[in-house]
Write a protein that binds this DNA or RNA. Structure first.
Lengths: 190, 190, 190, 190
DNA sequence: AATGAATGAGACTTCATTCAT
DNA sequence: GATGAATGAAGTCTCATTCAT
């Protein structure tokens, strides 16, 4: 691939990443192209159709999250903190895109599936460990935890420390844990 | 209104209620008509435009929720249980429609506004009482609680006792409360 | 035909006459029915379709005009005055409907055709006589005079003595005629 | 703008100009597109909506008329002849479109408004001068003259020398003028 | 027979996708 | 290879016409 082609592809994914994150999964192709400073034609040269672009963005996002997750996992810290880090990482990403792709249930995209599997595997690992260390409640499967993360983060303007995330994290905390619920939600005047 | 017209109006609202709940606020008029076993024209005879239908469905939903909320409030039970009942009532309703209408910010529909205000008032009342009785965490405003409910329930297939709702409710529970977190999430195989 | 049926038919034609005259040939069937205080169904019972109603209104109008024309013709007055009377009669009638039907060129409606023929015959008679008496310019066919009348009158709010009618009549006046152009147009401030 | 785009835009305006002139202001976008040999989408790329197309056609028409009017005004000829030239220019143009836009009363389109004002100014100038030179009857305001022109020309197939135009012009001629009414209408067999 | 509800074709418009330049 | 113009299917809405009550 030529240098300019690579540059264009990059511009597209950057623009799409931002727009999908800021405005949800329904942004028009025209708009993405405009934000990338390119014509639609170029967009379609790089991605055969809208789904392909969406999947690419999803994949890139998952790769990033996976890298960050692995880094967090490698650290010598309570698994609960690793979980929190994974949530923090996901804030500001196009999670609603991930979710809508997941809901659409596309079984034919190996790369995406692999990434999802890998991410799920990492998450599962952390979830199990956190459950073992007694910080994460035991009655949830990793998938369900994933669902809750998605939920907490699939909002425009989601931040890692806002009320929703805090409450969800507290809800995930093990009940027997005395240290639970130390996070305080800032009461905002709407 | 003639018997057949009433019957058809009912069919329309039933179909719309279901489709908006199952598939979100973007279902097409054509599809709603089809689901009701009617032509599009009939839809438009009963509701001048898409917004009107959406508002009607929203209003009906809010009325139901409000009735149920008032009934629950009237009962002699812990306010926490009232909150739970309100959440339970909302499951399976077109909450995402409510949300999108709220976001669209239509100030010109008195009935809807009144219902929203009344519902908010009820919720606020319960929230404050639950915070007073020490079951609901004190660092959240009623609006934030509302936001969390919306979040927990604006999903296709949301159920009153699924993992998401359970975790969110637990996250809302006051930390000092020894009885907290008794609810068990069923571990589902995805 | 029963008495109430006749009454309804009358209501319809009255309403249609007025609406076609005031608002042109595009009024909706619904609106005509409403103005008549009836349901659309009743309208369609009396007139198989929109064209039929339009033709009926056109026919009624032509009949009226024809009666008035014949009365005027019978009088002992200059033929020019008869012409003017015919124009005056036509003001406030649904002339644009007549025109649009004429343009649509429906050859299959005997009654309408007969009426048009009869009216044309009367007009032709008057036109020829006026041309003979030297008041109407000689370079126009009766059809063209008819066209000009239509033109002068196919306006919402056309009145028998407004600027347009005056100018058209003056333009029709024979040039050699010393008495021509006595009519003064009121200069309106728009 | 690319060559093909310009060509297509031209095709659209040409087709629209013709259809609006021949069939009035209500032609469908579909039909205009078909007449231009293009898809509807292309129409909408060039003109955001129906009104925009209509305004463009109106503006182009007014520009043409204004140019021709100014050229005629600049000539050393009786103002009456200038008036006639202005009428002649307008024949075959989509005057009914102009009229309907005027009636719709769009105050938000500066260009169109300027053109209308400029054209009205030119016409007013010529009308006053013709009244001063004694050829145009004095009992009409420029607006009324404009109204008569519209009337004479808002017909499908209006031609500069047909019976209607001739009669209207003769009706506008000053009565004291001995030379009046020299124009002969061709008697058509319709 | 009267009513007005139901129908569906057609109008306007948007946007994912294809294709000429 | 890039561009943005062209396409047409699909969505919302209207209205002439049909039909159940």
């Amino acid at each position: 691939m030529r240098a300019d082609a690579r540059r264009n592809r990059e511009r597209i994914t950057t623009a799409a990443l931002r727009l999908f994150a800021e405005r949800g999964p329904e942004v028009s192709m025209e708009e993405i192209a405009r934000a990338a400073g390119l014509g639609v034609g170029t967009l379609y040269r790089h991605f055969p159709d809208r789904r392909a672009l969406a999947k690419e963005i999803a994949a890139v996002t998952l790769e990033d999250l996976l890298d960050a997750a692995r880094a967090a996992i490698a650290r010598d810290a309570p698994r609960w903190d690793v979980l929190r880090a994974m949530v923090a990482q996901a804030a500001g990403r196009p999670m609603s895109l991930l979710k809508s792709l997941l809901e659409a249930g596309d079984t034919e995209t190996p790369r995406l599936r692999e990434l999802q599997d890998a991410y799920n595997a990492s998450l599962t690992e952390v979830v199990r460990a956190a459950q073992d260390e007694g910080t994460l409640r035991r009655d949830l499967s990793p998938d369900q935890v994933m669902g809750l993360f998605n939920l907490a983060l699939c909002r425009p303007g989601a931040r890692a420390d806002d009320a929703v995330v805090t409450v969800v994290l507290d809800g995930l905390r093990s009940r027997g844990d005395a240290a639970a619920g130390t996070g305080q939600v800032r009461v905002a005047g709407r």
